[in-house]
Amino acid sequence: AVCQVIGMYDYTAQNDDELAFNKGQIINVLNKEDPDWWKGEVNGQVGLFPSNYVKLTT
C-alpha cells in the first residue's frame, strides 16, 4: 500500500469498479495516479474511490 487514509464520509459505490466504505473506516491506498480517484482496498475489496472523501492518517 502507498499509504492509509480514513473515510471522512460514507461512500456508496456507483459502479462495479468503485470501492464502498464507511466514515471512520481505514482504507489502504494502492494507487494515486489519478488525483481525484484513488485505488484502494478495504476488507479484501479493491476499487476506486474519490480522494476528497478521505483524509490521511497521521
Rank of each mutant, 00 (worst) to 15 (best):
A1E: 13
A1W: 15
A1G: 11
A1K: 07
V2I: 14
V2N: 11
V2T: 11
V2S: 10
V2C: 09
V2F: 10
V2G: 12
C3E: 12
C3N: 10
C3T: 12
C3D: 13
Q4M: 06
Q4S: 10
Q4C: 06
Q4K: 10
Q4T: 11
V5R: 02
V5K: 04
V5W: 06
I6R: 08
I6D: 00
I6A: 05
I6P: 00
I6S: 05
G7L: 05
G7N: 00
G7Y: 00
G7E: 04
G7C: 15
G7D: 04
G7R: 02
G7F: 04
G7H: 07
M8H: 11
M8C: 13
M8Q: 15
M8W: 09
M8D: 05
M8K: 15
M8L: 15
M8I: 15
M8A: 15
M8P: 01
Y9R: 15
Y9I: 15
Y9S: 15
Y9W: 15
Y9E: 15
Y9F: 15
Y9P: 02
Y9G: 11
Y9M: 15
Y9A: 15
Y9Q: 15
Y9K: 15
D10C: 07
D10H: 10
D10W: 07
D10I: 01
D10E: 07
D10F: 00
D10A: 11
Y11M: 04
Y11W: 00
Y11L: 02
Y11N: 00
Y11P: 03
Y11V: 03
T12E: 13
T12N: 14
T12D: 11
T12R: 13
T12V: 11
A13Q: 04
A13E: 02
A13D: 00
A13S: 07
A13P: 13
A13V: 02
A13H: 02
A13M: 02
A13N: 02
A13W: 03
Q14G: 11
Q14C: 06
Q14N: 09
Q14S: 10
Q14T: 10
Q14V: 10
Q14W: 04
Q14E: 12
Q14I: 06
Q14M: 10
Q14D: 10
N15V: 05
N15R: 14
N15G: 14
N15E: 11
N15D: 11
D16S: 09
D16R: 10
D16P: 10
D16T: 11
D16N: 09
D16F: 05
D16M: 11
D17H: 09
D17E: 13
D17M: 13
D17N: 15
D17Q: 13
D17I: 08
D17Y: 09
D17F: 09
E18I: 01
E18T: 01
E18Y: 10
E18V: 04
E18H: 11
E18D: 10
E18S: 08
E18C: 09
L19A: 01
L19E: 07
L19T: 05
L19R: 03
L19H: 01
L19Y: 00
A20L: 03
A20W: 08
A20Q: 14
A20G: 15
F21D: 05
F21G: 03
F21Q: 00
F21R: 04
F21A: 01
F21I: 10
F21W: 04
N22W: 07
N22V: 13
N22Y: 08
N22S: 14
N22T: 14
N22A: 15
K23E: 13
K23I: 02
K23G: 04
K23T: 14
K23L: 03
G24T: 05
G24P: 02
G24K: 06
G24D: 06
I26F: 06
I26C: 12
I26V: 15
I26A: 10
I26M: 07
I26W: 07
I27D: 04
I27C: 05
I27N: 03
N28K: 13
N28H: 15
N28A: 11
N28V: 08
N28I: 08
N28G: 04
N28W: 10
N28Q: 08
V29C: 11
V29M: 01
V29H: 00
V29L: 09
V29I: 05
L30Y: 09
L30I: 14
L30A: 01
L30G: 00
L30N: 07
L30P: 00
L30K: 02
L30W: 07
N31H: 12
N31M: 10
N31S: 14
N31Q: 12
N31E: 15
N31V: 09
K32T: 12
K32Q: 13
K32R: 14
K32N: 09
K32W: 12
K32E: 06
K32A: 15
E33L: 07
E33H: 08
E33S: 12
E33A: 11
E33R: 08
D34S: 11
D34I: 00
D34C: 06
D34P: 06
D34H: 11
D36A: 14
D36N: 11
D36Y: 14
D36Q: 11
D36L: 13
W37T: 10
W37V: 10
W37D: 05
W37N: 06
W37R: 07
W37A: 06
W37M: 14
W37G: 04
W37E: 04
W37I: 13
W38P: 01
W38R: 00
W38V: 01
W38I: 00
W38C: 03
W38Q: 04
K39G: 12
G40N: 04
G40R: 03
G40C: 02
G40L: 03
E41I: 00
E41M: 05
E41T: 08
E41H: 07
E41L: 03
E41P: 00
E41C: 03
E41S: 09
E41G: 02
E41K: 07
V42P: 04
V42E: 00
V42C: 14
V42T: 09
V42H: 10
V42Y: 14
N43D: 13
N43V: 03
N43S: 09
N43A: 10
N43Y: 04
N43W: 00
N43P: 04
G44Q: 05
G44H: 05
G44P: 02
G44D: 08
G44T: 01
G44F: 02
G44Y: 04
G44K: 00
Q45A: 14
Q45C: 13
Q45N: 15
Q45M: 13
Q45Y: 08
Q45W: 06
Q45G: 05
V46G: 04
V46M: 08
V46E: 08
V46L: 07
V46I: 14
V46Q: 10
V46A: 07
V46S: 09
V46K: 09
V46W: 01
G47K: 06
G47P: 01
G47D: 02
G47Q: 05
L48T: 11
L48V: 13
L48W: 14
L48C: 11
L48P: 01
L48K: 13
L48M: 12
F49W: 03
F49I: 11
F49G: 02
F49R: 01
F49A: 03
P50W: 04
P50H: 00
P50V: 00
P50S: 00
P50T: 03
P50A: 07
S51R: 13
S51K: 12
S51Y: 00
S51T: 09
N52V: 08
N52K: 15
N52E: 11
N52F: 03
N52Q: 12
N52R: 14
N52C: 10
N52Y: 10
N52S: 13
Y53T: 12
Y53N: 06
Y53A: 14
Y53M: 15
Y53D: 02
Y53K: 14
V54I: 03
V54H: 03
V54A: 06
V54Q: 01
V54R: 04
K55V: 09
K55Y: 08
K55C: 12
K55G: 09
K55D: 07
L56T: 14
L56R: 09
L56I: 14
L56P: 12
L56K: 13
L56F: 12
L56N: 12
L56W: 08
T57L: 12
T57S: 11
T57A: 13
T58W: 07
T58S: 12
